[in-house]
Design a protein around this nucleic acid. Structure first.
Lengths: 87, 87
DNA sequence: ATAATATTTAGATAATTATCTAAATATCTA
DNA sequence: TAGATATTTAGATAATTATCTAAATATTAT
């Protein structure tokens, strides 16, 4: 995924909040949804964009889908930013 | 300006290219425009968004407006990203 | 002053993106 | 196998954002 997709993913307040929530602990889609007043399909759309940008991952646990923050990708993003302004 | 505005500013390919151009040297709006196939008002719109996000600055030189990259703001942005994934 | 050049502002339209409802898929339990 | 719960997919609509044309502002030169 491109750095552009990452910025786009971060440039939405709902998605930004999702990342903040996942920073504390892994959460299911339903648990994440409780923090927003949008429908499940809308939330699923945002989760999908974050996944496309490789900022989060998901695994199935029974009926639930558990989402996790991909910390290593944030490191890469920070590195790219540092390179941007130092070169 | 918020980190959210910065991400939004970066999440557009035209604006991203503008920043790449300004990395090499300061440029007038007209010189920047030569690299794109959009009208002057559209370009002005993008320059304004980058200014709002504090990623660039402008000064007048005669009839021209010269744009400069605000490198220090990129440093701050990288710092915030590092904090995000280390805390 | 007037004309020419550079850029921005205002307002309308087009393109993109977020959101919704309805329906589909996957898993678990009785 | 049904029925219940969790989530996603499909397709339509609403909201946001990029783009355009026309007009305004600022500067320079005649």
């Amino acid at each position: 995924m491109s750095i552009h997709d990452m910025y786009s993913a971060l440039a939405d307040s709902t998605r930004h909040k999702i990342l903040e929530l996942l920073k504390k602990r892994d959460l299911s889609a339903g648990q994440i949804g409780k923090h927003f007043s949008i429908t499940a399909p809308s939330l699923s759309h945002h989760l999908n964009i974050l996944k496309q940008a490789d900022l989060i991952s998901s695994r199935r646990e029974g009926q639930e889908m558990i989402y996790t923050l991909n910390l290593s990708v944030f490191e890469e993003l920070a590195e790219k930013l540092v390179k941007f302004f130092t070169l």
